[in-house]
Design a protein around this nucleic acid. Structure first.
Lengths: 277, 277
DNA sequence: ATGTCTTTGTGAACGCGTGCACAAAGATTG
DNA sequence: CAATCTTTGTGCACGCGTTCACAAAGACAT
């Protein structure tokens, strides 16, 4: 999953553990699918399988919401859909703004999943004057100058940041000053926000790096365990055809402990692309 | 953060806790920024602040990697950058494929963060024949028919799925059969994969739902605590101008316990958009 | 009405992650 | 070389989250 956790640690909300809250949308999705197939009831076992979790965990999660099941039968699908929706606040309409209409921002604006669940894109905002007025996803992009006005007029409390990293902190401050109290941040930066403001982070490159870690570990284990293909430097014609991955080129050797003290910009030369990692 | 966790629970890899691994990319980013500014060393306190974590946590995290600091001084930036890069496997080149070149897939292809950190987009794959050959991010889209061939020829072990929900499971199976062992899934579905395959999930609508939960809770607390604005149904002229959010319309009342048994498609009518939630 | 069978709801144990607080280590100064 | 000061590395305790396992509750059959 590509979701980091930037949350106040404890503050168990109304007794519902944070971990449980994070799973409720998962259950809701599975239940919605069942509802569409007109399935009247489900057991914890079935629903857990559909959501990809342990059935005991699911039952405990639901127990925090109340006793909504019937022993010997299971859970009423429609009823549970409503209860979870209500608990998550999806029975309300949440206007959101997307700031930063680049590749990602435009994709988010076009993403159907938002409107499908009670989230209404109230406005698209970008700092580029050339973007102003341009329609994206059937909606004219507005300029950053009007950010505060837009937030207040629409009663927006949730903001999505899809700007380059450099602009994210400042944008978040303006959003918060205007009344936003929840932020979904796609920019690869750590946002510092005052207490009471929730930030959730989606960072694509971090997710890939975590995968790379496990991938490397797998490759290492494999090499260590089965001592097959012993010819270390053997010329592999078709690299990794089949199982094991085949990393292509090695990069940048050590560089010596505290050697390079004042190097202007190391060989790792991160020329910041559209959105630097 | 917008990252769910779909991971084998324990299996502490080589003694490095999963939670630590998830933070390493964060440290790496902060360190890279310092490196670019030619800062030679940092204390755990400074680096922790830059990464947005507790300094004790950071030191403990680094202790899993080894003793790379110098007491009384701090950590050598360049050296630490290398060590973390190596630990994460970023000193290798990781070819990835992106499957599903819709709005999101195209945005991902254009996203600079990938190539900036050792991840090379080896191919873009889409099931739509009309897309085949079309250039996206300076690279021709290839058809799904060639998926296996592409994976094997390029030694790809990491796949990114950005297809509609309905296609994701099947795509994952083909990727895995062809040799992919790590998947970053943007489709709103629970993928079931064999042991040994890592899946990380990025789900935009889930992140928003979690924010909505907290947002609702804040609004509730506010209403409960400060009994100001007592006129429950009072007509708010400018909704939520300033602090509290202003949810607009209420949706779908209860529906009565086990009443609606066999409803074809509830009022929640989820007409699946481009990417259904 | 009684018994059986299914499935929930939860008490309890365990393990991981976090954060405090401090001793050990090394740099630096006199 | 000794004293002081800074900062790391970690032992320990605490709390959250997960999982097991089972008693209680209700449906259903007889």
């Amino acid at each position: 999953m590509a979701t980091g956790r930037t949350h106040r640690p404890a503050t168990r909300s109304r007794g519902i553990p944070e971990a449980t809250v994070a799973r409720l949308p998962l259950y809701l999705r599975a239940l919605t699918a069942l509802s569409e197939r007109s399935v009247p009831t489900v057991s914890s076992e079935e629903l857990a399988a559909a959501a990809g979790v342990n059935s005991a965990k699911l039952r405990k999660d639901f127990s925090y919401l109340g006793s909504y099941g019937t022993r010997g039968v299971g859970y009423d699908v429609e009823y549970l859909v409503y209860q979870i929706s209500r608990e998550l606040g999806l029975t309300q309409d949440w206007p959101v703004v997307i700031v930063g209409i680049g590749n990602l921002g435009a994709a988010l604006a076009n993403y159907g999943g938002f409107s499908a669940r009670g989230f209404r894109v109230a406005a698209l905002i970008d700092a580029d004057p050339a973007m102003a007025g341009k329609p994206v996803a059937g909606m004219p992009v507005q300029h950053t100058d009007d950010l505060e006005k837009i937030i207040e007029e629409n009663g927006v409390s949730i903001g999505v940041i899809a700007t380059p990293a450099g602009a994210a902190q400042q944008v978040s401050e303006r959003l918060i000053a205007a009344g936003v109290t929840s932020i979904l941040n796609f920019a690869p930066t750590v946002l510092s926000v005052p207490d009471g403001v929730d930030v959730r982070k989606v960072d694509l490159s971090i997710e890939l790096q975590i995968l790379a870690f496990h991938e490397q570990r797998k490759a290492g284990e494999e090499a260590a365990a089965g001592a097959s293909v012993p010819g270390g430097e053997g010329v592999a014609e078709v690299p990794g055809a089949g199982s094991g991955a085949a990393p292509a080129a090695a990069v940048e050797p050590p560089a010596g402990r505290a050697a390079a003290v004042a190097r202007k910009n190391g060989p790792e030369g991160d020329v910041p692309a559209v959105m630097p990692a």
